[in-house]
Design a protein around this nucleic acid. Structure first.
Length: 466
RNA sequence: GCGCCGGUAGCUCAAUUGGCAGAGCAUUUGACUCUUAAUCAACAGGUUCCGGGUUCAAGUCCCGGCCGGCGCACCA
């Protein structure tokens, strides 16, 4: 029977720093209790050395037949077993800081182990399906998840510090809305109703602003029934926040400070390497309009007012066929994506998106065909999306109706009309700016990972059939 | 969803032109009083992802399926 508790009082990392002064062969006279997993075991006749890993790091266990209780049993520990050890802190003659094992107890047995002490676990299928073994075998896997945790913590603390109230909104939605995406479908038996897993918390959050929460944020999971790739997991984490009385320029300023601040909190610098290439979070980030960037890329002046025929011809030159339902706005957005996105390495704000692709954003004060919307790009991918919120219920209804026409034309990602949301706007949404940040994407940057699965503890995998 | 690549012992990986399926580590047994991926000796360990086919002979070639990686599409 293994124990139900173990009263440990020391960690590997703190012992290493507290006893750094011990010289080779010196004994401290201090007895500590440590616990963790046996990573390596080296027996040598009447001596045995084990490498113990706890949450802080690793430290050596030094067992002697003459001193250690049940020395024979100690030498028969398996790699991966959890043990609790009581013993004196010493440095061995060969210079390794150790706990000289007096008494010890096996806290849990590892019935499986991976054996290879050098290569760890390399098989992706095994690593992701049994992340617990991956985390035990591969320190780098643990490191990436720790980075993610630090990113989440930093985002939360910075939102709290800016007086945003953290809230939670429904994941089970009668209407999937707030973004353009195919939803997951589910069913509630007692209510005898279909539900959709949320694709964004956006509309709920703005309803809270209507209700008087002037600054709110939600950090949580959203679900999109779309392709899986090294940059897309079907469920992913989004930070969304809304601030009354701000516009999109205020929100851009907040966004860059937030993201650069996370880099400072987690890494202590804004200057990093991502996938072997220098990358800088340093603020301010450039602000460029979508039309400007697209014009530069295609070598002629284009905008939302360029005739659709010209835009579709430019798309065709880039092997993109403009769908008949696309107006000039959608064409411009597509042109931007195919011609600019791949070159946006350091963070940049792309601004002034067409109304046609921004059904929840307020029209631009200088051009009613544009919106006061931005997306930030980093490492050639979208990192955040924000805008001055559309708070006119009449215009919002028109935008939803346009979405409905797209849906009728076969666009299965178009938004549905949300009458409750329109009614909320009729109660009065103050001028407000909103922001969404992909937390997994940001974590990839901070953890220097190219695969989103590395920053998700248990990524979505296809279930095994028999 | 499409394309390319991969799947061999518990783990990491070999296996020539189609010719007896191997090593290291882990497990088991033994030796060893300062090891560090300890070392040394011995034993054991297999539906070569699954199902068909070609062949005297298939881990290897062909067809189908499963799972994964990458790319494309979709998207954040």
């Amino acid at each position: 029977m293994t124990p139900y508790t173990f009263d440990h009082n020391a960690f590997a990392a703190t012992l290493r720093s507290a006893y750094a002064h011990l010289v080779d062969g010196e004994e401290s006279g201090v007895v500590v209790k440590v616990a963790g997993r046996v990573m390596l075991l080296r027996t040598q006749g009447k001596l045995a050395f084990a490498t113990l890993r706890d949450s802080s790091g690793e430290i050596q266990l030094f067992a002697l037949a003459a001193l250690t209780e049940d020395f024979e049993g100690f030498t028969k520990l398996h790699l991966g077993d959890w043990v609790g050890v009581t013993g004196e802190v010493v440095r061995t003659r060969r210079g390794e800081l150790s706990v000289k094992v007096g008494s010890w107890v096996r806290l849990a047995e590892a019935l499986h182990n991976f054996g290879d002490k050098w290569a760890g676990i390399a098989d992706f299928d095994l690593r992701y399906r049994h992340r617990e073994a991956d985390l035990w075998a591969n320190p780098a896997s643990r490191e990436s998840l720790v980075r993610r945790s630090q990113v989440v913590r930093s985002l939360r603390e910075r939102c709290w510090a800016a007086d945003f109230t953290e809230v939670e909104t429904p994941m089970l939605n009668a209407i999937p809305t707030g973004a353009a995406a195919r939803p997951f479908r589910t069913f509630h038996h007692a209510l005898d109703s279909d539900f959709f897993l949320r694709i964004a918390p956006e509309l709920w959050l703005k309803r809270l602003v209507v209700g008087g929460f002037e600054r709110v944020f939600e950090l949580g999971r959203v679900f999109r029934n779309e392709g899986v790739s090294p940059r897309h997991n079907p469920e992913f984490t989004m930070l969304e926040l809304y601030a009354a009385y701000w516009n999109y320029r205020d929100m851009m300023a907040f966004t860059e400070e937030l993201v650069a601040g996370v880099a400072m909190d987690v890494l202590g610098t804004t200057e990093i390497e991502y996938q072997g290439r220098p990358f800088s979070f340093a603020t301010p980030w450039p602000r460029r309009t979508m039309a400007e960037l697209a014009s530069e890329a295609v070598g002629e002046e284009v905008s939302v007012h360029t005739p659709r025929e010209r835009l579709s011809a430019l798309l065709a030159e880039r092997d993109v066929e403009a769908h008949p339902s696309w107006g000039p706005g959608r064409c411009l957005a597509e042109l931007f994506e195919v011609s600019c996105e791949h070159s946006l390495w350091n963070p940049i704000f792309v601004t002034d998106f067409p109304v046609e692709v921004s059904p929840l954003a307020r029209r631009h004060q200088g051009d009613p065909e544009l919106t006061e919307r931005f997306e930030s790009y980093a490492a050639c991918r979208e990192l955040s999306n924000g805008f001055t919120e559309l708070n006119d219920p009449v215009d919002q209804r028109l935008r939803f109706e346009e979405q409905a026409r797209l849906a009728a034309a076969g666009d299965d990602e178009a938004m549905a009309i949300d009458e409750d949301y329109i009614k909320a706007l009729e109660w009065g949404l103050p001028p407000t700016a909103g922001l969404g940040i992909g937390v997994d994407r940001l974590s990839m940057l901070i953890a220097d990972e190219s695969n989103i699965r590395e920053v998700i503890a248990f990524p979505t995998l296809k279930p095994l059939k028999d």
